[in-house]
């Protein structure tokens, strides 16, 4: 009798896949910080970072090196373990989402069919929702453990903002689920890829808008970056943080952005579907690579829109933010759900 009966090949395959996806996300996040500065520069009519390397392409590495080389300061009155746990949690929660995103169809290597998705679980989108709701702990624990009034205020703001917008997000999601009839992201993408089927955004334009706004609020992006409103709260929940722990907080925002873009692409824009092309006519490996490229293109477009909005719209006031969440988005999402349900019932001829 063996001690452990595990399919080792499957384990190795999944581990390699996890490593590739995590490092790819981190790499993209690295360059997203660079893209953010460049986009800001273009929108404000200035050159932006252009000193490190050709076109300033080495800038993110210079920034990262700077953060790592800085002195690590832990306030003496801080709760030490939780102070370190905070940024770690923020980063973990941001990266955990990638487990259920279908990055493409399958590739065939060494006579094995490898799905380019870490786990196709039957509750896929709920898992994303659960992880997102855990992301707020990183902010809360970090803000509280710093033992600083401003950090605590910012952490509480962040938590209440996240909870408020999660509600509208969940309700807008329900309308999508009613159309697809499945919680698995893979099934949802497959449905949108089927010939003669439009992307979900065509059936759920209002739902997509609500989801997009909520995703922006969940990522703490301007105009929803109240937790780090520097003119009211000095610097926000990560005020006491320095060195790479601060870097983790800043970085997790970008990872969150990539993941929410990937989720939006999968839910509403056909995931790795290439428009006007029947992928089944291609060889599976080529289709898989093209699929990854298509999904990445969609993600990049979403990230650009995120940045565009950030550098165009000023920050909300806190009461405006709460009013938008509770009095506009939630009723709209409920209305959207009701209309979708009525429409489905009518189509079924009930």
């Amino acid at each position: 009798m063996t001690l452990l009966s595990i399919d080792w090949l499957l384990l190795i395959e999944k581990l390699i896949l996890i490593a590739i996806i995590v490092f790819a996300s981190l790499g993209i996040a690295l360059y997203t910080t660079f893209a953010e500065r460049k986009v800001a520069a273009i929108l404000q009519d200035r050159p932006g970072p252009n000193r490190a390397g050709p076109f300033g392409l080495l800038q993110p590495f210079a920034d990262g090196l700077k953060l790592i080389m800085k002195e690590e300061i832990i306030p003496s009155s801080a709760s030490k373990f939780l102070f370190i746990l905070g940024p770690g949690l923020a980063m973990t929660a941001a990266l955990m989402t990638c487990a259920v995103i279908p990055w493409s169809s399958h590739v065939e290597l060494f006579d094995r069919k490898i799905d380019l998705q870490i786990a196709d679980i039957n509750i896929g989108i709920l898992y994303v929702f659960g992880v997102v709701s855990l992301g707020v702990y990183g902010i809360m624990i970090g803000g509280w453990a710093s033992n600083n009034k401003f950090s605590l205020m910012a952490a509480l703001r962040g938590a209440s903002q996240a909870i408020s917008y999660e509600l509208a997000m969940g309700i807008s999601l329900i309308a999508v689920l009613m159309i697809s009839g499945s919680l698995s992201l893979k099934t949802m993408v497959d449905q949108q890829m089927a010939p003669g089927q439009l992307w979900n955004v065509a059936y759920q334009p209002l739902g997509f808008l609500i989801f997009f706004i909520c995703a922006m609020a969940e990522c703490n992006r301007t105009p929803f970056d109240l937790p780090e409103a520097e003119n009211e709260l000095n610097f926000g929940y990560h005020q006491e943080y320095s060195s790479m722990k601060l870097g983790f907080y800043l970085f997790s925002e970008y990872v969150n952005m990539i993941m929410s873009s990937a989720i939006m692409a999968s839910l509403f824009f056909g995931g790795f579907d290439i428009p006007f092309l029947d992928e089944r006519t291609l060889a599976p490996n080529i289709a898989a690579i093209l699929g990854v490229a298509a999904l990445l293109t969609k993600i990049v477009i979403f990230i650009f829109v995120f940045m565009w909005i950030r550098w165009t719209i000023p920050r909300f006031r806190y009461d405006q933010l709460m009013n938008l969440g509770w009095k506009t988005l939630i009723p709209l999402a409920l209305f959207n759900m009701l209309v979708t349900g009525a429409f489905i019932l009518w189509r079924q001829g009930g």
């Binding site: 039957n122 898992y127 929702f129 659960g130 707020v136 809360m140 509480l156 909870i163």
Partner: peptide, 25 residues
């Protein structure tokens, strides 16, 4: 799986956040 994730969303994701909220405030 559904019970597992709902347990996380409702208890760990919502109720405990409110607990923390009150205790921190």
């Amino acid at each position: 799986q559904f019970l597992a994730i709902v347990n996380l969303i409702v208890y760990a994701g919502a109720i405990m956040v409110l607990f923390l909220f009150v205790i921190m405030l």
